[in-house]
Design a protein around this nucleic acid. Sequence first.
RNA 1: CGGGGCGUAGCGCAGCUUGGUUAGCGCGCCUGGUUUGGGACCAGGAGGUCCCGGGUUCGAAUCCCGGCGCCCCGACCA
Length: 470
Amino acid sequence: MASPSVLTPQSEDFPKWYQDIVAKAEMADNGPVRGTMVIRPYGYAIWERIQASIDERIKRTGAQNAYFPLFIPESYLSKESEHIEGFSPELAVVTHAGGEELAEPIVVRPTSETVIGEFMAKWIQSYRDLPLLLNQWANVVRWELRPRLFLRSSEFLWQEGHTAHASAEDASAYAMRIHLQVYNDFLEKVLAVPTFLGIKPPSERFAGATNTMTCEGMMRDGKALQMATSHELGQNFARAFDIYYQSEEGQAELCFTTSWGASTRLVGGLIMAHGDDNGLVLPPAVAPWVVVVIAVREDEEVLAACQQLNEVLSSQGLRTQIDDGRRGSFGRRVTDWEMKGVPLRIEVGPRDLAQGLVTVVRRDTGEKFPVALTEVVDLVESLVGQIQDDMYAAATAFRDERTKDVNSLDEAILTAQSGFARLAWDLVGENGEARLKAEAMTVRCLQRADGAIPDNELEEGLVAIIAKSY
RNA sequence: CGGGGCGUAGCGCAGCUUGGUUAGCGCGCCUGGUUUGGGACCAGGAGGUCCCGGGUUCGAAUCCCGGCGCCCCGACCA
């Protein structure tokens, strides 16, 4: 029986497909205030796995977690002129509290460079205090005109790292380390999303940064998504907040700072990088449940077999969920689990069971394996790694198919209708960026010819990655 | 902030043009039963300030005026 599709097909209306999946996989709802988001348990479970993976990597680089306040004096934002200019259109400002108008308005943090800068100045006295490596997990508010769940909401959750260093070289090296060993490693190994790494052209830089690095992923509609960014802030914030240290020679020296972040947007990226017309497709590393054991029918023997299997699998450290059949017909339950993107399902029914078999099915390829009960654990364990690898390979193949080297802006505009164009940066220029803007396209990042991250946009022979984006 | 569209049950919608019994339909939900190897079926049932305010009228979901909200498409952002 061919069942009608539950979702709007991607090919018909990609944004609608995305909205459908967020609702039907029970990821999130719109909050009561426009632009706010209620993250439902399944969506939050995915976020928690993302958090854990990133947090572990951050700590490996030596940074420590801390927490800074949600409310920031408006005057702080104004201390760095580019920063305030960049953020003022998106600020939520508290003017009244305690029943009275406030003497100084309070800003709800859009990011925390300013408060953290203030405290870095207090905490850093000597070169011995450097580098100071901080991170916080928090919510931030940037008022959005056109919100979309996970991708762009007025309030979102993220991690923001803030560091201070004695030299530009040290700051730069640390930002690069975060970019490669935290973000890119996480994206490749956990989310199974290949990226283009590079620096933002000056027009796309973070407000107040001297250099912004980005990880650009390709979604199933060929558009780009910025999945994480790392900024070198030079001495801009150090100067604004008096972040000085005393050198070995006894001189007062300005610090060099960095900041870097990744947000709940990653959940949106995960959906759009791997999802298909049957719903989410989750790489095992980020899936709340790697395996669901499904009873084909409510039958004592079947249920007993399911429970036993479930126990064996979880004793092997696999995150499993059992579906005992009380929630409706088999077909319906299967489509629900597919919608949620669980990487593997094990169907346990009387027919197979009579022969000592169960059926293992891969979510990513749809392949079915009849397998002896005694061999299920081994098969599942090998498939988990296989699926993770295959999904990365499939996403890479998809991205490469839709990425083209081009020789002119006209060609780039054509290619970027449905993918990424690689064009020599020299051939873009200021007029080029304006023309791209008119086509709803941007230079996503600048790379060296071999794909490496350049030091700055003035290097010779850089390549611009051009695409539409979220 | 520009351009479109829409507010009627949890969700999706019809009804409005041409005002008139108790406001319908599908999905979902509850109860009972039969089912269950790819979105099951039968029977019964619960659920509504028809976005808000005002006006016209014997009578407004429907007509008029004014608000508010939401969604989609564009300019800014993670």
